[in-house]
């Protein structure tokens, strides 16, 4: 019992005020620079897509960008809630499912409106194999930032938190990659981008229990 008294003494002595929104601030500090690193990495290794000027006029470019950005935002918010011991993922899985289903509908509409001989281009494109791997690569800095933040938080569901943190990083990495990728097929984005995001999610669920323990 004596020892507990000593611990309480030292904790009281160590007390410093905690600013409001300390957790939000920590997320901003951990994630925004990591996202900048990903962007710089992309610009250095790949560069912007060669047809950037025209691409900015294409709905396909913006739909692709929005798909990744929305998934990333939903996942970051869920990870933020899970960083509190009494937090939950809320409706993350429903929201993510709604985003993916909407993308699937867009993809089907695009296929219906296109001639059949363009299908291989829209589904496999010319980069199907390396797209998920590059997304995974650009996700890694953000993933590291996420883990850095969460290790100072207090998540209680480590595997789930790791998975969602991975999805957030994957979607952020996919968003970064979409500034380079010249694919305009929505089925392509639905399949190969989602695969890259899922890969990062799996990495998170595997590493979560080990990295996030406190």
């Amino acid at each position: 019992m004596r020892k507990t008294d000593n611990i309480i003494d030292s904790l009281v002595g160590d007390l410093k005020p905690v600013p409001r929104h300390a957790l939000e601030r920590r997320f901003a500090i951990g994630i925004l620079p990591a996202l900048a690193v990903s962007l710089v990495l992309m610009l250095a290794i790949l560069g912007l897509r060669i047809d950037m000027a025209e691409a900015l006029m294409l709905p396909a470019f913006w739909i692709k960008s929005a798909y990744n950005a929305l998934l990333a935002i939903a996942a970051f918010l869920a990870a933020y809630h899970l960083a509190r011991p009494d937090g939950s993922q809320g409706r993350f899985f429903q929201i993510a499912a709604a985003i993916v289903v909407t993308m699937a509908v867009v993809a089907v509409i695009q296929l219906i409106m296109s001639p059949v001989d363009t299908y291989p281009k829209m589904i496999l494109g010319s980069s199907a194999l390396h797209c998920p791997l590059l997304i995974f690569l650009f996700a890694l800095p953000v993933f590291a930032g996420n883990i850095w933040v969460l290790r100072r938080g207090a998540p209680t569901e480590l595997r789930l938190t790791g998975f969602i943190a991975g999805i957030a990083a994957g979607a952020a990495g996919a968003w970064v990659y979409s500034w380079f990728c010249t694919e305009n097929g929505m089925p392509f984005v639905l399949i190969w981008y989602s695969l890259g995001i899922l890969l990062t999610g799996i990495l998170g669920s595997l590493m979560g229990p080990r990295l996030l323990r406190w």
Binding site: K3, T4, I7, A22, L23, W214
Partner: peptide, 14 residues
């Protein structure tokens, strides 16, 4: 009990 008190302290920002 001690470990939980330490956790309360180090995680109080959450």
């Amino acid at each position: 009990v001690q470990e939980t008190l330490l956790a309360l302290h180090s995680r109080r920002g959450t």
